[in-house]
């Protein structure tokens, strides 16, 4: 008898909870998944394609679908750490196959060598190069993401990637790096 009770009670309970869950599943459905946007916000937006995807957004979508988080050299360790936190996985070292973390750089066109072919303009993912056919081109330095996609297409190799100069405003307080002037004794 007690066994029958147990079966009935548990069966009814399960039925009730199943009904509740079935109701909740439809009623409280969450629609879109903003995870891609969150990932995209962490990526450095250099649009360099080193991850193997055409731009940061496609890579963000790939991560959301389970791709590795360590394919972004411009973001480096900091980005991996943030992504790991967001995705709830262990941070991994940067996958060297995609490149290594480097200092921030900016593209500079040696203007007297530029032949005005506009190839770099087409290559720039953020429209940071100004110019027109047969006219000299120049890089808008503060819009340049340092992706170096413009370097390869240039037929005359007149684009250099130079490190972003350190100014007193963005200096990092590394006292060890200060060159100390040696003053000869005045006497």
């Amino acid at each position: 008898m007690s066994m029958l009770t147990a079966i009935i009670v548990l069966g009814v309970l399960a039925l009730v909870f199943g009904l509740i869950l079935g109701f909740a599943a439809v009623r409280f459905k969450v629609e879109s998944d903003p995870i891609v946007d969150q990932i995209d916000a962490i990526l450095p937006q250099t649009q360099c394609g080193q991850c193997g995807y055409p731009g940061c957004r496609p890579y963000a979508e790939a991560i959301a679908n389970g791709d590795a988080i360590n394919k972004c050299p411009p973001g480096g360790e900091a980005t991996i750490k943030q992504l790991a936190e967001l995705m709830g996985v262990e941070p991994q070292p940067l996958d060297a196959a995609h490149g290594t973390e480097d200092v921030k750089k900016v593209a500079v066109i040696r203007e007297d060598e530029c032949i005005g072919c506009t190839k770099c303009i087409q290559a720039c993912p953020v429209d940071a190069i100004l110019g027109a056919a047969k006219q000299m081109h120049t890089v808008i330095a503060h819009e340049c993401t340092g992706c170096d996609l413009c370097v390869e297409p240039c037929p005359v190799d007149c684009i250099d990637m130079v490190p972003v100069p350190v100014r007193p405003e963005n200096w990092q307080w590394n006292l060890e790096q200060i060159p100390v002037t040696v003053v000869e004794s005045a006497k």
Binding site: A14, L15, G18, L19, L21, G22, F23
Partner: peptide, 10 residues
């Protein structure tokens, strides 16, 4: 949804 879930769980 309720019918299905309820039945399966039960």
């Amino acid at each position: 949804s309720m019918r299905h879930n309820g039945m399966v769980l039960a």
